[in-house]
Design a protein around this nucleic acid. Structure first.
Lengths: 403, 403
DNA sequence: GTTTGTTCGTAAGGTTTACTAACAAACGTG
DNA sequence: CACGTTTGTTAGTAAACCTTACGAACAAAC
């Protein structure tokens, strides 16, 4: 019954008195900034709806779009007129196939009209970037070696990389998307990225001011899950990104989860199981990262090699145990959120095999089959480019409302 | 690399081919039913915004509401005119305090104009219900003994309880909110509630047809977290409801999480730890419910008493271990979602004490302090009425857009 | 070849919504 | 008492989407 000391990161407020006179529901809560809705906002929404329809279903007639959206042909013609004037949509000529009635004029998003810059800062040795098309196709790549650069030097490298990528674009640029390690807030400020020596770095503002383009910045795993959501039909999914560290990105009910402190997905330092485990850099024993991070796994496998040609099963045992640990951490999350899809991203030779199998097995034995029958666990199909493509999705979503 | 058998609840789709010709992002996904936005929808939104403002901040002038919402005085007058005509808002006369300018006419939601019926089906022996005011105050209670009724008999009991509650109302009824155990879908169909012998019971339609009133049905824990969200200023919170079983409700980014299969929050049968545990009714060993459910805890404590007057520390040990197990399951969820608040609901004499302390301790030692510094773990302040009040919030939110 | 029915895209006119501008009423202040 | 301030309403305007109507262009049936 004693309150825990206030120094504790998890403090109890059991006995905190509520404000006197406050209503039972809601009155004490800060006013929600839901915001008014003006006619022009409705227009913006419907405009995005047209783009989304074209983006998702491809070239079609105005009448098709009208049927798809529920708006009238008249309104669609009006909206499409705007979009054509802006260069976002083009007419493709008449439909070929033979059917009764006036032949339709096909329209589509001009998928060659804009380029997007995607940047991935999540790798340890190199900053990678790409020029990405509206469809997600990678048009050109570039990268800069990091050479241990931190703080201002690292920021300069990002600028340099973006500049080189912009030089390669041949059409107007829709925006710049950046996936950064660490905790990133809603304004694209990197609150904390220890690896890069960043703390409260206003990357979005800086890059935006430098290149006069829309910029979106988010955590690398949160960016990666956007790429996965784009190519999945699930609206509740989790992506686990295994690299130098272990992080996750979540989509819940079709929307990215950010978390109260912008640290959603930070599962690398959650302790796994009740039987200890390897000592982690953070000081605790048995963190997920201590079991699963790539350096840890490769080191363990290298030890095996050093001890002579052991049976392949020893290698498999190591990977299987890592997979089991991942499953143990994921089980409560899968259960609590009733996820329908979990995706793994990272080195295929490590993740795709015994590790993956063990995770599947562990999830199966530790969750309720009845509720999670539809759950799928799979490797990403985006490979190494997942953050680059996710960054493009982020820009697409932010600038056009398409996602 | 072998795909797991299709009978497995967690199946691998590692090698599933994507549809040929599908675009890299999105094209393969089903068209999102985002929906068009018409001017009247904007109107509805702004109307709800006015109600929300009044509900949250209390009586004020039209001009105050205009400043609070960002809409103009003219628009607010128009909207308020509608609301007064509908009987939702009333004029309270002129403001008393002395200041320059024309004296303001105070308006407020007519908090006595409507009653809400709240029903809680989560208890084992009894169905409880209440007439609830718009502010959440409980105006009258009623209950029916369940006597083990299941299937149709249980449905009839619900109808009977609602009928008796309606007879007690003295004003028009805004709607009926029901918190049911089991899995409930978006249309208020109880997909599965083993305790009540329900399977695909269209409770919302049935009660709605019987009483010709708006009805909202959801899972009991998901309903309970609405009550908690109403009196909290956190937009990422989890409520753990400990009773005959163990369930949870989540609010993520201010919205309730429902899950792909409508089973979000079902954490009772997630296995805890890596050291076995008590056999659970579901067949697995060491489910959270096997550690934490009230029958299990009381049985363990009763065994103690039977063995003679043991030290109080033995009782504390049992509760502490249960709390530790809860912390172990919650740690990955708290980490993944970066929750800012976790609330416990259930018997105070069991939860509020060593159990609570142990959960706090365990969460502290198993998550990253840096990310979860602001996390609070506390008992609910709604006590036994949490589902009844949550049901009222659900109706308020569904019918008026107020939450 | 003609008629019929269908489909597409556009034009005209009406309704809803929220805005700006302007004003009367009612108050405190100097 | 003149003046500035605040409130709430009236009048007119702009934006957005709707319904209705129509010409153009086609397939199918006669």
């Amino acid at each position: 019954m004693e309150p825990t000391p206030p120094t504790s990161p998890v403090a109890s407020e059991l006995h905190a008195a509520s404000a006197p006179g406050a209503a039972i529901f809601g009155r004490s809560r800060a006013l929600r900034p839901t915001g008014k809705v003006l006619p022009e906002h409705a227009r913006t929404h419907n405009r995005a709806l047209v783009l989304q329809t074209l983006y998702t279903a491809g070239a079609q007639s105005r009448a098709d779009v009208a049927r798809g959206t529920g708006l009238t042909r008249v309104t669609i013609s009006d909206l499409v007129g705007d979009l054509i004037a802006e260069g976002l949509v083009i007419e493709l000529g008449q439909r070929e196939d033979a059917r009764p009635g006036k032949p339709a004029t096909l329209i589509d998003i001009d998928r060659e009209a804009f380029h997007i810059i995607g940047v991935d800062l999540s790798e340890h040795e190199v900053f990678r970037g790409a020029v990405v098309g509206l469809d997600g196709q990678i048009i050109g790549r570039d990268e800069v070696a990091r050479d241990g650069a931190t703080a201002e030097a690292a920021e300069l490298l990002v600028e340099q990389l973006v500049e080189r990528l912009l030089a390669r674009t041949t059409t107007p640029v829709l925006g710049i998307g950046i996936g950064s390690p660490g905790v990133v807030d809603e304004h694209g400020v990197v609150r904390s990225a220890p690896n890069l020596g960043w703390s409260d770095v206003a990357l979005q503002d800086r890059i935006g001011a430098r290149f006069a383009l829309p910029v979106h910045v988010a955590n690398d795993a949160n960016v990666a899950v956007l790429a996965e959501h784009g190519s999945s039909h699930h609206d509740d999914l989790l992506l686990v990104k295994v690299g130098h560290g272990v992080g996750a990105g979540l989509i819940i009910g079709g929307r990215p989860a950010v978390g109260g402190g912008f640290a959603a997905g930070e599962i690398g330092h959650v302790v796994v199981g009740t039987d200890g485990g390897p000592r982690c850099a953070c000081g605790k024993d048995g963190c997920l990262e201590a079991w699963l991070a790539v350096p840890r796994l490769t080191a363990q496998l290298a030890e095996l090699d050093g001890a002579g040609r052991t049976a392949a099963s020893a290698r498999d045992d190591i990977l299987r145990e890592a997979g089991r640990r991942l499953g143990i951490v994921l089980a409560p999350v899968v259960g609590a959120l009733n996820l329908s899809e979990v995706v793994l991203s990272g080195p295929t030779q490590l993740l795709d095999g015994p590790l993956h199998e063990a995770t599947v097995d562990t999830l199966r034995t530790r969750t309720m089959a009845e509720f999670n029958r539809d759950l799928r666990l799979r490797m990403t199909e985006h490979g190494q480019d997942i953050v680059l493509r996710g960054a493009a999705v982020m820009v697409l979503s932010g600038q056009l409302g398409v996602s």
